[in-house]
Design a protein around this nucleic acid. Sequence first.
RNA 1: AGCCCGAUAGUAUAAGGGUAGUACGACAGAUUUUGGUUCUGUUUGUCUAGGUUCGAAUCCUGGUCGGGCUACCA
Length: 570
Amino acid sequence: MTGAPTDATERRDDESSARSLNFIEQIVEDDLASGKHGGRVHTRFPPEPNGYLHIGHAKSICLNFGLADKYGGQTNLRFDDTNPVTEDTEYVESIKADVRWLGFEWENEFYASDYFDKLYEFAESLIQKGLAYVDDSTSEEIAAQKGNPAEPGQESPYRNRSIDENLDLFRRMRAGEFPDGAKVLRAKIDMASPNMHFRDPIIYRIKHAHHHRTGDKWCIYPMYDFAHGQSDSIEEITHSVCTLEFIPHRPLYDWFIEKLEIFPSKQYEFARLNLTYTVMSKRKLLQLVNEGHVTGWDDPRMPTISGLRRRGYTPASIREFADRIGIAKRENMIDVGLLEFCIREELNKTTDRVMAVVDENPIKLVITNYPEGQTETLRIENNPEDASAGDREVPFSREVYVERDDFMENPPKKYFRLAPGQMVRLKGAYIVRCDEVVKDADGTVVQLNCTYIPESRSGSDTSGINVKGTIHWVSVPHAKEAEVRLYDRLFTVEDPSGEEGDFKSYINPNSLQVVRAKVEPNLSTRQVGDRVQFMRKGYFTVDPDSTADLLLFNRTVTLKDSWGKEVKKG
RNA sequence: AGCCCGAUAGUAUAAGGGUAGUACGACAGAUUUUGGUUCUGUUUGUCUAGGUUCGAAUCCUGGUCGGGCUACCA
């Protein structure tokens, strides 16, 4: 029982952790305190349906949905589909599946294209106010007019057309009278602004393209800057959260809202996620897929949600990760080790331990004093972290497979595994001593002849012998075959995008190693998506490509390996 | 060059003028039938120069460094 002082301490800790808000939560709480929007919090997650979601999006999803959860608000899922040539329903479906898999449910499913009529009206009203004009300049001419950040731009020769002419031209653009690129609608702001986005930004362009939702209804489409803020406003989004690169767009976001006199949504920006040993841009991920460096968007080496899912990551571990990395404006590079920590932390508590000899070419260990033909069934606990996980039956016999790594003919001092004359415990079974090493013609160790201590059986050990090492094993006559895919980081350098030259030249040639394994027979009952710990090896999940004949396991993450580290240090 | 954003341990992230804290990592030890887990301990930090103040990571000014801005992409 704890006394009053401890309670007080705990309460203070709770309060301080509850008060440790990220800067966006602080803004929300300030708004709540001042009664802004009647205490309403409404966020949105606005993906463009032109690619798959990745862990960086997960950060944004957790932020947006998390804000609404925390403050009793709502979150819309809104597809930012204003560019018909790159967008597709395939992506819409995968995005929805990924958001749901992460554990979030949206209030409304909206599309920027739902607002095309409204947006068109907004554009006309801007023209009526003398704040937009139709420009016949080519894209090269417009780029040239823009000037550069240090020097003011030049006004377009079409800038001072009359309102009536602009209206007529814009309507004819909509009616399809002009080919792609012939004209654009531009906001009339300030060609000398130090903010390049204010130099008469294009707000509508002609694209005779089929849209995944509106079909062929439109041949003019709004640009991001004339769709995003307005969509936020239409949905009465209170806090429109996006990444840093949109900071220069914010004055424009506010300008349109002010001129259109619509609901004053506000934009706030945070720093996107960067992870070591990977790339995060959609463009680069698409390249990896298209050029065959990975097997697809859901390749377990990809930082996509679907890749992580196939790799064996859980939604909770990703949410935990998003929570731990925090939200700030400073650019950051998160150690992928933190992601690995999050999944290990969860899987340690939740997965059954099983034994698998993950070795193309394991060593056969023969127990010379164990009766030939005898088999016994051992009961081994499934999870030392969770008594309720129960135990399982594991067959044991005279011959078992062990890993080549668990034997050394000339071991260093602190090697606790098999070596000539050395004893180890076979996990859940007996202590054995290595008596004789059998090699083939090439001198490769193929078999270890051992003797076992009959009184050392796990659970009823009366031998009094203490051994330092315990190794896993699989009974030879009972072993099942499996294929195991050992994944490693996709890149050899921490920041592939920051290195000289093409990021693809830093791809890790050993990011995937496919190995045969001998596994415990009870593993054959596992289903696709099940997760287990291969004792002493790591956490694995059953891949969807598994067949009735052959189970395929993907390694989610290795166990921490302090011995391996010791060996590396020399 | 102009404008914008940022700068707290190795990496992230708190401290809202009053003891620089937390997590991951690293290191050391204990426990352990997983060299896992767990537990304990150690280590390392406010970019810089001024100013305001009894007191500055925090407010102000200059500088330095890093990032961004000149798509009919979002």
